[in-house]
Simulated assay, not measured.
Amino acid sequence: MYTSSHGNAKYTPAGYPATAMNVPHHPHVSPFHGTAASAAGWSTGLCHCCDDPANCVITCFCPCVTFGQIAEIVNKGSISCAASGAVYGLLALTGLSCLYSCVYRSRLRGQYDLEEAPCADCLVHFCCETCSLCQEYRELKNRGFDMGIGWNANMDRQGRGVTVAPVVGRMAR
């Protein structure tokens, strides 16, 4: 396997670490859980919904879709997008969906060693559910996941060497 060195870690030409942990590399966040001395920052801010306006609109009108996509990736395909979205939708009828979704924010943070910011996970989801879902969606997308195809298709693409390039940043004048 051809690898190029970047710092202390080795990555394949597709941007994946040359280790057993096949997580897309993002230059602003560590793909390795527990390797940094402290938690890494999110790739985008909580209120940067304009970075992905299509997802922002979908999340505002039907947050169960965005939540289902996030949950399927965080659960590594063990629970489908449709099943997670349906549970979220049912809980939304009772007003308890934010409790369910904050659990997934905590899991996502744990998987990628992200800081608990701007405040506690449940508080973020309780005060700004749509913004938190959009941020989590962007985080996974920026880490190279194609959110529209689910976990299994992402792993299939990765196995074939087809990847979605992680978002590095925006050009500014």
Rank of each mutant, 00 (worst) to 15 (best):
A83G: 02
G148I: 06
Y137P: 00
R107V: 03
K141V: 05
E139K: 00
A86S: 14
Y112G: 09
S101G: 11
S132R: 05
L90F: 13
E129K: 08
L99F: 14
Y104Q: 02
V124E: 03
R143W: 01
D121V: 04
V124I: 13
L114W: 06
W151V: 02
L91Y: 11
V74D: 07
G68K: 02
L140T: 02
L108M: 04
E136K: 01
T94W: 14
G110M: 12
G95Q: 12
W151S: 01
L91S: 09
F126W: 15
M147Q: 03
A92T: 11
I149C: 15
V87G: 03
A82C: 15
D146W: 04
E136I: 00
C98M: 05
C131N: 14
W151E: 05
D146M: 06
N152L: 14
A117N: 10
G95T: 08
L114S: 03
R143C: 02
M147P: 04
E115H: 10
G85N: 07
S84Q: 07
C81D: 07
L90H: 12
L93T: 14
D121E: 12
S80W: 00
L108S: 09
N75E: 13
S78D: 13
G77N: 02
C119E: 13
C102D: 04
D146Y: 08
L140N: 07
W151P: 07
G148M: 11
G95V: 14
G150Q: 00
W151D: 01
C119Q: 12
A92F: 05
I73F: 08
R105V: 06
L133Y: 02
M147A: 10
R138A: 05
Q111K: 12
V124P: 01
D113Q: 13
D113C: 11
C98W: 04
K76T: 12
D121W: 07
S97K: 05
S80Y: 05
G110I: 05
F126A: 11
G110L: 11
Q135H: 04
N142V: 00
A92V: 09
Y112A: 01
N152C: 09
L93F: 15
Y137I: 03
E115C: 15
S78G: 11
R107Y: 00
W151G: 04
H125I: 01
A117P: 07
T94L: 15
G95Y: 13
S97M: 11
S84L: 07
Q69V: 07
I70S: 01
D113E: 06
S97W: 08
G144V: 03
Q69N: 11
T94A: 15
D146V: 09
D121C: 10
C134P: 06
E115P: 09
S78E: 15
E139S: 02
I70G: 02
L96D: 11
C119Y: 11
L123N: 02
A71V: 04
G110H: 13
S80G: 10
A153H: 12
L114A: 08
Y88K: 04
K76E: 13
Y137D: 00
L99M: 13
K76I: 00
G148Y: 08
S132P: 06
G150I: 06
C98G: 08
G95N: 12
Q135D: 09
R105S: 03
V87H: 06
V124A: 08
E115F: 02
R143P: 06
C128V: 10
M147F: 10
K141P: 03
Q135P: 03
S132W: 02
L91N: 09
R109K: 14
A86V: 08
K141H: 13
V124G: 07
